[in-house]
Every structure is written in C-alpha cells, then in structure tokens.
Amino acid sequence: MPVPIKSTLGILGDNLTKRQSALPLGRRKVIAWTRGLNIPRGGKTVLYTGQMWQMVPAINAMAHQLARYEHSRLTALFGFARSMNKLVNLTPLLARTTAKDRAEFDRRLRNIARLLRAAGVEFGYLYENDLYAGGLAHDEGLDRALLAHAQLVYRNLREAGVERVITVDPHTTNMLRSVYPKIVPEYHLEVQSYLEVLAEQKLARRAPVDRTVAIHDSCVYARYEGVVDQPRKLLTGAGVTIAEPEMSGKLTFCCGGPLETLFPGKSAEIATRRIGQLSAASPQVVTACPLCLANLSRVAPPKTEVRDISDYLVDAYCPAEA
C-alpha cells in the first residue's frame, strides 16, 4: 500500500495546530545552533530560520522510515499513528536524530550568521519564537491549519517589534514574502533571503575557493522568488567556477523533495535524475536549500559531493571560527 495521504496529512495538520511545526523538534534543538554566537534577542532586523535547517536530520530520518513503510502493510497503521500523535508527539520516536547529524546541519546556520557578520549586517534572533513558517501545510492544501499558524507567526514578529526578516532558505522566504501577504490581514514585513542581503554588500574575500561546482537552483528560489543571480555572484566572487548543468536557473529541475513525505519512491526517482544532470557538469554540486541538499545527498553517487552554498562562501569570506 502507498503511504496513506489522509492520515499523513492529518498528522501534519495536527502537528502544526497543536505543536506549531510539521515536525515538532523542541526548543532546545531549534536554538542549539546559536550556542556561543551571542546573537541578541529580537530587534528590528532578525535572522529567521523557520526551523528548516534544524528539521533536516528529522526529515532525513522520517524519509528513511517512510521509504521502508511505502508499499508495506504497516501503512495500515497510519490512522492509528495519527490518533496517538494527537495525544503524544511521535516525531522523536519516528524521526530519531543524532547529535552529530544535528550539528552538521546547524553548522549551515552558523555559517550564515558568520557571513552576515562579515558583511557588517546587524541582526537579532527570536529564539523560541523562531517558528516554522508552514510551507508544507501550504503546499499540501491544509489551508485552515496554515491560516491560524501564519497569524501566530506574524503576531510573534509584530510583538517583538520586527520590521525586517532575513531568511535562510527558499521555502521560508516564499512563505513570509509571497504567501503571508495574501492570507494574513495587514501584513507588513520586509523579507530578504540572506543570499540577497549578502549580494548587496561588499564582501572582502579572504581566501579564494578554487573549485568548479555544478549549481543546483532550488525551484522555489528560482521560479517563485526570482533568486538566480545572487548565488552566482557570491560564488564567483568567492573564486568558484560555476558549471551550469542541463536545466539551470529559471529552467531548473526539481530535486524531488516535495514528494518525500507522500511518495518516497517517486521522490528518489526525481532526485536520481537530477543528480545525474548535476554530476555530469561537475562532481562537486552546490545547493542553496536544506531540502534540496538532503534529497540530492541521499542519492548522490560515491564520487559526487553535495554541499551547501554557505560552506563555500564561509571559506572565502569569513575568518576561521574560534
């Protein structure tokens, strides 16, 4: 049996309504990345993660489980799992993560904070009020749950006095910049991705990164938000040579990530096609979205390395971390 759509989306909607996230992580895991960075609380400009990077280890673990359950009899238990999940958060049980995995993805948020500081951009952070923006609920058509959640997210931002948000991934950028204005009354917020912010700054290169990389454009950055030139400008400035794969820029090809919840098999097929296009251009692949990174990494052949853009940028533009 395929993954049951009704029960799976029910769990997602319940989690968003009851626990404010698609995959509720707990406060400690959400803010662990800030340790030692001394980022001030709140402020007019905040770095808003939407918990996307923090969620990736749990998403990977969940995707692994779902791939095992797909087409098995265990899918018959999803209705029961939804009933249980209403009472107890099952995410920690179904999506077990290790400290090492979490540190690996938290590192990208630290990269981004370091890059913004190197560019002289001042920002605060909302800590426990850095809530998930609801992208999956939006995509899957869970509009009631999303509307209530979006209002909560915006209320938190307004009460904290935030006027400008710097985002770290395409999905949160799209939600806060393009979706919320349509569904949240009297919504006023300036929203920019950190790539857009950095591309407007004069960054001093400390060390050139002498690599040739195949660039994978996120569908959401490229086609929803028009973020295509900024990653190229930053990478070129870092000394990186960009190899454009078959299907790039606004014609980019999906990583398969959107299907990993309901159709893990199809998701892997799309990811495999995409990593083939990318690795034909270069065995070094760069992404700018945590979900693209996760989905493409899972199917990457042994000699293909998939890295986040911030890994290259921090090597070029930031002093070594103490």
Binding site: R223, Y224, C254, L259, F263, I270
Partner: peptide
C-alpha cells in the same frame, strides 16, 4: 493531484 511537485516548470 498529490504527486505534483509544485515546481512550476
């Protein structure tokens, strides 16, 4: 309907 990637290609 639920397979669509919403990739906007």
């Amino acid at each position: 309907i639920f397979s669509c990637l919403l990739c906007k290609l």
